[in-house]
Design a protein around this nucleic acid. Structure first.
Lengths: 333, 333
DNA sequence: GGCGTGACAGTAAGCGTTTACTGTTGCCCG
DNA sequence: CGGGCAACAGTAAACGCTTACTGTCACGCC
């Protein structure tokens, strides 16, 4: 339509670094607009063996933690013209591996693992094969949490984050602090448990194993844990005066169940979470927690991927955490 | 490696409907496994002018409403080997159009609009062009909410949903019910407002315009609306005894701000939301709301897209809503 | 015995781009 | 005034796959 060869048209629309006269360029652009031309990313991708898409592997997009991270990736990706594919693995190694395979088949430019690694056969067999192939073909792989293959590219100091909340609770006069520990199959949960022990040790408080309860990572699990604690005849106020949770969802569930039991927060017991997901500020009472820069993690994750794509060496970064005291914690009565 | 032609190998790995002898097939499969062969989806897609990917356009993946819908799409998509691309438009027509253009450029098999339509120049100019092109090229386009182009393929009866909550509140003795209406720029908010008026009319209660407050669709907006109401010297208990919110996020914000003002829910005022996002069950008091089958909507949306792809006529479906009374509502004192 | 037929296997075209390479100008400089 | 070069423009190959088409062979039937 512009009366030029395909090559010339391509050079104009793809903004190639190749001289094209102003008149020709103009004609091509006019024709392109007229035809509502949109380049075929598949053809382009076939040539480059890469399509401007990054996959984000999360445990569950419905978990506000991951939604925030994905949003961070998305915001950073958007400006570069990248699209992001969300993959909820539901903590199933096979599903995770299958997603990564699909991402590999479509030559995604990068894969960002937002959730922490799993102890799962598929995660140690099929997954590493795909990850290696992805890397070999020039795709970027970045981790935002600890995992089987080692240290994450972008991380947050879970251990010291939890420890500083322990310190804050100790500061408020609490010495018997229960811990809802999350699932021990998750690397990140183990780090947080270590942080709890570390914080206690720092304060010179011996850990009471009866106060450490293994849980899932959901609100229901938090509510159930409260039931378990109460069933074990651990009296709030005497056996423990504060409950620290390995993530906010657990804390939310705990808060609700405590309310149902007529146990007042923070008068009878203080409750603290970890992550600072948006709803943490919206509960009544609002939840004291440790803020993780979730969106920022997503953003940095994407940026690290881009850097890797450009052949740069990516240096591991650790992002800061911050204790946020709200209304669910109070001085020990 | 298997000693066969590319065509034969293709027939085996793509499970084409073409006879291949058992021996040959075996050899190909063995070689494929040995080589860790993964087909190139881009090459395949280039040929078919379509790649097994669907885009979901949401306002914000961080909003639990959309996270649920996306998860529904994802779950349905996974079994078919489709990947889902999340696009948070942030209610910006230009950003939305740009996402759809990107989806078009990569020949996505479908685009699902999860959020309701926008009143925005870009949404009435660029967007329809891309949507038309997508449809013309055989891609499926499905809407889960009302929008400028008409009725959604999958929907929920917002109007009657709200109206039935009004009825439930009236049943509890409330007659002065404030309404946090959401943004009037959103089709869905307008439908809900209509439902509120309808419900009131059904109960023979005249609408008091002072009790209808325009808001955003966030928790902050809900909190602010409470401030506005109180600033207007509308006394809880006398001017109104219940607050109905156009979505749960608004209700969450309202709940928190009421708590801060020392106004007890439900003793002083009842609060109800709409959507039944997961956190609605986790607040204290837990939130009475209207359940929308969000995940199911996502799932149906994907299925409708597949049906459209197969050339089937897709019939509009309306999914049921259900009033869920929890602890934030009570009989009028 | 010739031939139609079914079961395979291979050849090659084509999907929409990008880009190395090959022209063709016109201009500058020695 | 001729050679060299910059500035363009076009040709064609290649990316990895699917599939229409073209064999080839063995078998069974008239």
């Amino acid at each position: 339509m512009a009366g030029v060869s395909i090559a010339t048209a391509s050079r104009v629309v793809s903004e190639a670094d190749y001289p094209v006269s102003a008149r020709t360029r103009e004609r091509v652009l006019t024709a392109a607009k007229e035809l509502d031309y949109v380049p075929n990313a598949l053809a382009r991708g076939l040539l480059k063996s890469q399509i401007p898409v990054v996959g984000v592997i999360v445990h569950d997009i419905t978990d506000p933690y991951f939604a925030e991270v994905v949003r961070g990736v998305e915001d950073a990706a958007e400006s570069g013209g990248y699209l992001v594919i969300t993959c909820s693995s539901e903590r199933d190694g096979a599903r995770e591996a299958s997603y990564v395979r699909l991402l590999r088949s479509m030559r995604a430019a990068g894969v960002i693992f937002a959730g922490s690694g799993l102890d799962d056969p598929a995660s140690v067999e099929e997954l590493p094969r795909h990850v290696a192939a992805l890397r070999a073909s020039g795709a970027a792989v970045v981790h935002l949490s600890p995992h089987a293959q080692g240290e994450p590219e972008i991380s947050v100091d879970n251990r010291n984050g939890i420890a500083s909340m322990v310190a804050a609770l100790v500061e408020l006069g609490h010495s018997r602090i229960a811990f809802l520990a999350g699932p021990s199959s998750l690397y990140v949960a183990r780090e947080r448990l270590a942080g709890y022990r570390h914080g206690l040790a720092e304060a010179g408080i011996p850990a009471d194993e009866r106060l450490i309860v293994g849980t899932g990572f959901s609100a229901e699990a938090g509510a159930r844990a409260i039931d378990d604690i109460l069933d074990a005849h651990l009296e709030p106020g005497t056996a423990f005066s504060a409950i620290l949770c390995a993530n906010d969802l657990l804390a939310l569930g705990a808060l609700q169940r405590l309310h149902e039991h007529g146990i007042d927060v923070p008068a009878d017991v203080s409750v603290a979470g970890f992550d600072d997901i948006p709803v943490a500020a919206m509960t009544a009472p609002s939840l004291s927690t440790v803020r993780l820069p979730l969106r920022e993690m997503g953003k940095r994750g994407f940026e690290a991927a881009i850097r890797a794509l450009e052949g740069e060496q990516v240096m591991p970064e650790t992002l800061p955490t911050e204790v946020v005291m709200r209304d669910s914690t109070g001085r020990r009565q």
